[in-house]
Design a protein around this nucleic acid. Structure first.
Lengths: 339, 339
DNA sequence: TTGTAAGCGTTATCAT
DNA sequence: ATGATAACGCTTACAA
């Protein structure tokens, strides 16, 4: 349980200066072979561990990046984290993980803490649901390096990594219309100020418009991104008289779709016979539920990887420009759409 | 993009000393009301963010804990992380996440890095598969605070949080014997030097012994903890002539069970009619697979919470004793056992 | 090749 | 109530 060993201790034990020890331990050229040997051996058996905190104070570099996710239970995010982790592991960065739990206040707090920890950069999927960008504007002004992923905030000049949400949402809606002939299609949407909420809504809308289908506002219900929200939205939808119900529901993501399925099933509907449902994410449960979920496959691992790569570029090259990186998502047709 | 604002900048701008600024910002009593006001306002609009790195250097406290997990894709671990996160959020600690990817070398490396980052403590589920505890002995000697969870290493005097693996494994094996009358039961085990590998094996063994069933060594196959291992183990098992095959397989965890199911299904077996399979974890997919998995429900969230609580106690109370915390797991009977 | 001095941003300690 | 100084562990810049 001895006190922590520092450069100074090694230096004293050996009768050299701390600088010599520092140099030896950092493989600098300008230190005598024998001296280096002695120092390395001594450090080893004194159990020396460099103090990165002190190092960081000098270099203002912590080799650390912060990650803020809105929802650790949505399987999409751990998979993103895996992608991030692959990159940070290779490049010897550490990853500080924080969970905003879908609350923007927690997100702000997390970011402030990360900044005060002097992380070299931050990856974030935002929980922001209102049109108040001032927080982000002000921290970007201070030079905080930031890359958004999945849930982005545009117009701030920050980089963003995401899938082609709008096209994908349009494609899955098209599938319902063209392959199954559905005309009455509802949408359980996320908050509209979150990119993915807005984009997926717009894709849905465009598909209907392109087919000359008039949008029924009763069928557009905000479910948010969680199962519970999908469950509630479905209950609301099924409050409508039977004649006024849709044939299909396009959900903003998989968890919402699962919640919707559960509510529909409890109320005696069969999926997809009585009601078709689609998701967005293709998380781990999608192929397994009783009516395997037709959804949009989002390459989560890839999203994490690309976001981390971009952030590291920004950290390591002064003039790295902001960039909008779009990753192709693919339709995953299963049974819940009626196929 | 202005340079970072420090105490000194605020002090100069206001013509006071840095100490006064420090005191005001930290709510010390001994600072004049008006001075404090001026300082707070100035700090605010200069966009001051405290530098925790500098703070840490003085206090040798980082408000940071490290977490090392063996496998971020196994859904059990993100759920544990959620539990940890709940505690660290409440107590204003940050969480540094590292993934050892089932490799002990990466685990060692992760721990060394965490130590050099001066984390206040480490939570770890070990990937160690051999009986070489020297690494842990040496880092514990230096006073590193450590709590194991799930995959523990005993005999080091470190705390550990885990479920009652042996009893649970015995109970699920008993279920196969007593409720279904199976006598020919195989076991896909983890490495024996990992606690959970050993304990679950011993539970399985004890159940057979208590029922006077002789163990068939051909049926004990090391699958490890991943799907792929379960898949391979099942292929090996099904290489046996039909007459020499077991009626049931007790798998060391859910992923191994899923892999085993897949291989069995591909080879034309029906589960549970031709072969019963059980798991251990009760992860998110367990109820959803085509033969819903009979397994042991491990309260992952609770494991994370308790481990984090224990670690914080150790960090905050000098003399906090090591403790072995056992959490009760429960049998989750579904269809894959034949029920 | 090695050493000395100063400084990174903060706080503890001892003045004033 | 406020300030000066040293210290945390390390590295950069300069000197010997």
């Amino acid at each position: 349980m001895g006190k922590k060993v520092t450069l100074k201790h090694i230096a004293e034990a050996l009768g050299v200066s701390t600088m010599t020890v520092s140099r030896a331990l950092n493989n600098r050229s300008n230190v005598d072979g024998k001296t280096r040997e002695r120092i390395l051996r001594k450090a080893e058996n004194m159990g020396y561990t460099p103090n990165r905190v002190a190092k960081s104070l000098v270099s203002s570099k912590t080799q650390t990046i912060g990650v803020v996710i809105p929802e650790i239970t949505h399987a999409f995010f751990p998979e993103v984290v895996r992608g991030i982790e692959e990159i940070t592991y290779q490049t010897d960065y550490q990853l500080i993980l924080t969970n905003a739990n879908e609350q923007f206040d927690r997100e702000k707090h997390a970011i402030q803490t990360l900044r005060s920890q002097q992380v070299d950069g931050i990856l974030i999927s935002s929980s922001l649901t209102e049109k108040d960008y001032s927080f982000y504007e002000s921290i970007l002004e201070t030079g905080t390096r930031l890359v958004f992923f999945d849930r982005c905030i545009h117009g701030l000049g920050a980089s963003c990594v995401h899938v082609n949400d709008r096209e994908s949402s349009e494609a899955i809606t098209n599938h319902l219309i063209e392959e199954h002939g559905y005309q009455k299609i509802a949408h359980f949407c996320g908050p509209r100020h979150v990119t993915i909420g807005k984009e997926r809504y717009l894709g849905y809308k465009r598909a209907l418009e392109n087919h000359g289908i008039v949008i029924n506002e009763d069928w557009i219900i905000e479910s948010g991104f969680k199962e519970e929200g999908g469950y509630n939205a479905m209950q609301k939808l099924l409050d409508l008289p039977v004649s006024a119900r849709p044939e299909a529901v396009v959900c903003v993501n998989d968890p919402a779709a699962f919640g919707a399925m559960e509510a529909a099933t409890e109320l005696g509907l069969k999926i997809p016979e009585d009601l078709a449902i689609t998701g967005f994410s293709d998380e781990i449960r999608a192929p397994l539920v009783s009516a395997p979920l037709t959804t949009v496959h989002q390459p989560a691992y890839e999203v994490g990887k690309r976001a981390a790569e971009k952030l590291l570029k920004i950290i390591e090259n002064e003039g790295e420009p902001a960039e909008d990186i779009e990753i192709e998502a693919t339709l995953k047709i299963r049974r819940s759409c009626g196929c």
